[in-house]
Design a protein around this nucleic acid. Structure first.
Length: 557
RNA sequence: GUCCCGGUAGCUCAACAGGAUAGAGCAACGGACUUCUAAUCCGUUGGUUGGGGGUUCGAGUCCCUCCCGGGACGCCA
């Protein structure tokens, strides 16, 4: 936890005590102190922190907000915790002004913590699982998957930095109807490649990647499966293709900077009896019934519009049934919190899955689902329609090759998950000069360039008179660096990775401004040393935030 | 038809669970390189936060209603 966070929590505590004291002296009345915010005001003239406490209390206390604020201020200890001045302003805000010198303790802290600067323990080691992408292995990874990958991986990084014990997981949909279709598609390609005139299934997966896959198989084993029983043949083809496609996905994701801890097979839930087990449990609790030969879950008991089929009349469990078993399995594995990143086309499943977990006796709040809006791809100013049906779309691999991993990841993470994302390929490619990711990286490269020139001369923060830093550009930069640990905590608790992309940009902006007005390698020895400490702290912070975003921090550009 | 997510500057997006004068980037226009990297900086232009009601000290944010865009409503996943 950073300096700023510590000061902030102490001021909060003093505020609570001041209010309590005012209450016990009969100056204001309330039962429970309501929750209030101590925030950094947008306007600098409003101080370093401001609280709405008095305005929140106004209703209960039956006094005008400003009057309450005045009262609380009387009991607030000025002179402690760097608080220099407290004032009442506007409709009843209490503004806090800090001794400017508080800033100087930030730099030694950054230097000391190094790559851990920004990390905290608010997660208290709680086990969290982030499940993301989980794309069907029947095709290639598309732009939506890429967005999910960038978001999920960054979120996992952020949670780990905030002190959670994070597991990244990919749920492999290797069971169900689609696998049947997959098998028939593969079979048709296989036979076609061997010269047979067989039709391609109407509902099959037409992608060229399946042809490629079967070509590889033929190179290995030839027409070995030509005369095999079709059922058995499809099983072989599926096994081969699944393995190849998963390896490809794993590699493509790794090239995008995403490494999973667990690849979890849906089929394993069928094989292990986990689905049967969960069905049995729901049945015992009386939440299942039979109708039209199928087995239904009483989702309507849990706020759903209608009930849901768990086992089809042909005896095969639905995807939903597997998903219930899967999430039970997650909790059984000891995760305190489970986070799923789903595309908007799955939002309808959220409440019914939570309902099923409730039926099983789990607290549904332990499952958080981030619904990510879909990505629209533009090329040449035209919307590119993407679908597996047409077999024509931009893959994650194409994306990394065309625009690069850094730019792609930064772009995806810049936007909040619930906003639609227009991705202009042409812009992303040719934009190398205006691209925000280069702007941030350039700040880092500039710092490294300075440090290269003073090789060995980089002083320790503790040995330098940091008070030499007095320029507004210097103080604002330090202030921004001080914000970093709080930003990580905020992004982690709100599950909002995009905030860190914005933070990175703002930090780079302040650095570039500083660079323009303040020369680091100046003749004044004290100032020079102090500025070296400052740019080094900036470098560390930039590198740390970029690392959370999965973006490289180049030393030269 | 029901439900979910959006609608903020010409464009792409922010706005820290209701806070003080709604902010950035791009685009447009005008400036700054014999000086640590100009992939940079400075300045100007740009808004009835989709419309209309309501809640309160205070609304882009919450409630109601309508309009527009996207998505979901299957014994598919």
């Amino acid at each position: 936890m950073g300096v700023l966070e510590r000061i902030k929590s102490r001021i909060c505590q003093d505020l609570r005590e001041a209010a309590q004291e005012a209450k016990s002296q009969g100056k204001i009345e309330y039962d429970e102190l309501p929750s209030f915010v101590l925030e950094v005001p947008r306007e600098k003239v409003h101080g370093d922190f401001a609280t709405n406490l008095a305005m929140i209390l106004a209703k209960k206390a039956g006094q005008p907000p400003r009057k309450i604020a005045e009262t609380i201020v009387q009991f607030f200890p000025v002179g402690k915790n760097w608080v220099r001045k407290v004032e009442v302003a506007g409709p009843g805000f209490i503004n806090f002004f800090l001794e400017p010198s508080w800033l100087y303790q930030v730099l030694p802290e950054v230097e000391e913590e190094g790559e851990n600067y920004g990390c905290s323990q608010i997660g208290k080691g709680k086990k969290v699982q982030v499940e993301f992408v989980s794309a069907n292995p029947t095709g290639l990874l598309h732009m939506g998957n890429a967005r999910g990958a960038a978001l999920g991986d960054t979120l996992a990084n952020i949670l780990a930095a905030a002190g959670y014990d994070v597991t990244r997981e990919f749920y492999v949909n290797d069971a169900g109807n689609q696998i049947e279709v997959f098998g028939r598609s593969l079979e048709a390609r296989y036979l076609q490649l061997l010269g047979q005139d067989v039709p391609f299934p109407e509902d099959g997966y037409p992608g060229e990647d399946l042809v490629e896959c079967m070509r590889n198989l033929i190179n290995e084993v030839g027409d070995k499966y030509l005369k095999v029983d079709p059922q058995l043949r499809r099983e072989h083809l599926i096994r081969y293709a699944l393995k190849e496609k998963l390896q490809q996905m794993e590699k493509d994701l790794a090239d995008f900077g995403v490494i999973y801890d667990v690849w979890f097979s849906e089929q394993s839930l069928h094989d292990s009896g986990a689905i049967e087990e969960v069905l049995k449990e729901l049945k015992e609790k009386g939440y299942l019934y039979e109708k039209d030969g199928a087995l239904w879950f009483r989702a309507s008991l849990f706020g759903e519009e209608k009930d849901e089929v768990l086992v089809r009349s042909n005896g095969v469990p639905t995807y939903f049934a597997a998903d219930i078993a899967y999430h039970k399995n997650k909790f059984d594995r000891g995760f305190d919190q489970v986070i799923n990143i789903w595309g908007a086309d799955h939002h309808g499943h959220v409440s019914r899955l939570k309902g099923a977990l409730k039926a099983l006796g789990y607290d549904p709040n332990r499952l958080q689902i981030i619904i990510m809006q879909l990505v629209r791809l533009f090329r040449g100013g035209e919307l590119v329609r993407m679908s597996k049906r047409s077999g024509e779309y931009i893959t994650l691999r194409d994306l990394v090759e065309e625009v690069g991993r850094d730019a792609a990841r930064f772009f995806f993470v810049m936007r909040s998950a619930d906003s639609h994302l227009d991705f202009d390929m042409d812009l992303a490619k040719k934009q190398s000069e205006e691209n925000p990711v280069y702007y941030v990286q350039y700040a880092h490269a500039r710092i490294c360039s300075i440090l290269r020139q003073v090789k060995g001369e980089l002083p320790r923060a503790g040995e330098v008179p940091l008070e030499a830093l007095q320029e507004p550009a210097e103080l604002e930069l330090i202030r921004k660096i001080a914000d970093y640990p709080g930003e990580v905590i905020f992004a982690a608790t709100h599950l909002e990775p995009h905030r860190l992309a914005h933070y990175a940009y703002e930090l780079a902006t302040l650095f570039h401004g500083f660079y323009t007005t303040c020369r680091v390698l100046t003749d004044d020895p004290d100032l020079r040393r102090a500025r070296l400490v400052l740019v080094n702290a900036t470098r560390i912070t930039l590198r740390n935030v970029l690392s959370l975003l999965g973006v490289s921090a180049p030393e030269r550009m």
